[in-house]
């Protein structure tokens, strides 16, 4: 089966500053694909590059066989990719209901209502907070809301940028469980950038290790976890 996402020899960065060097990866449909690496290695930049938020100097990105290199973010969103930034991923001043309504902005109103009630079924905690402003939600609840907002558009591929940053361990585990459920129950392909490399590699199918903007490892997630040197060297994993 052809991969759902194909990144080939990409050089990318911000302005004149190149961050990624000749990065290639292939993501199979319905996989959880984990990107790990030390701080400042370009993990978030890679996610942004897929979503069209950086400058691509060289290489190509194909999604579902369609060329998306250099397309603006709102066009990429239409192809079925959702991107969840680490922060500012919800409208803090708007209520939970309004946030969901905005996520369904481009859908016809009856379809929008249907999708909103679908995601509320999935995340009942949001149902109880519909009238509250998003700024009153806890960090974990905000991630859930952001997830719900992306689900409204029924994406095929979701890009998560450190969804558990600044969350308590228990909450972090819950968020990661929700992400696994997205794949298991809805068949959504996941690309996950995660600080907690061990947790991420345990739940992942495939993994990519980025160091200094270059690919150090590409292959099975479990294999990376058990790799004799790489884990200890770059990810702070004990042997």
């Amino acid at each position: 089966m052809a991969p759902i996402l194909e990144v080939k020899g990409v050089d990318a960065g911000y302005g004149k500053l190149q961050i990624l060097f000749n990065v290639s990866m292939e993501v199979e449909s319905k996989d959880i694909f984990v990107i790990v690496g030390p701080n400042g290695s370009g993990k978030s930049t890679l996610l942004k590059t897929i979503f069209g938020l950086t400058r691509i100097y060289k290489g190509s990105i194909r999604f579902n066989g369609e060329e998306i290199t250099g397309k603006p973010p709102h066009d990429i969103a239409k192809t079925g990719i959702a991107y969840l930034p680490q922060t500012d991923n919800v409208f803090a001043q708007l209520t939970v209901a309004e946030n969901l309504k905005m996520a369904a902005y481009t859908l016809p109103s009856d379809l929008a209502e249907e999708r909103i009630s679908e995601v509320l079924e999935r995340f009942p905690l949001l149902k109880a907070r519909l009238k509250d402003k998003a700024m009153t939600l806890s960090g974990g609840q905000r991630q859930i809301l952001a997830m719900a907002m992306s689900l409204i558009r029924k994406p095929k591929l979701m890009l998560f940028d450190e969804p558990t940053a600044a969350l308590a361990p228990k909450l972090a585990a819950e968020i990661l469980d929700e992400i696994i459920k997205l794949r298991d129950e809805l068949g959504i392909t996941i690309i996950l950038v995660e600080q907690n490399a061990k947790k991420a590699l345990q739940m992942g199918d495939k993994a990519l290790l980025l160091v200094g903007g270059r690919v150090m490892y590409r292959g099975g997630a479990k294999e990376l976890l058990e790799h004799p040197e790489l884990g200890a060297l770059y990810l702070g994993l004990k042997k």
Binding site: L17, G40, S41, G42, S44, E162
Partner: peptide, 9 residues
């Protein structure tokens, strides 16, 4: 900043 901090946010 570009060197040390990766995240745009």
């Amino acid at each position: 900043l570009e060197d040390k901090v990766e995240d745009e946010q």
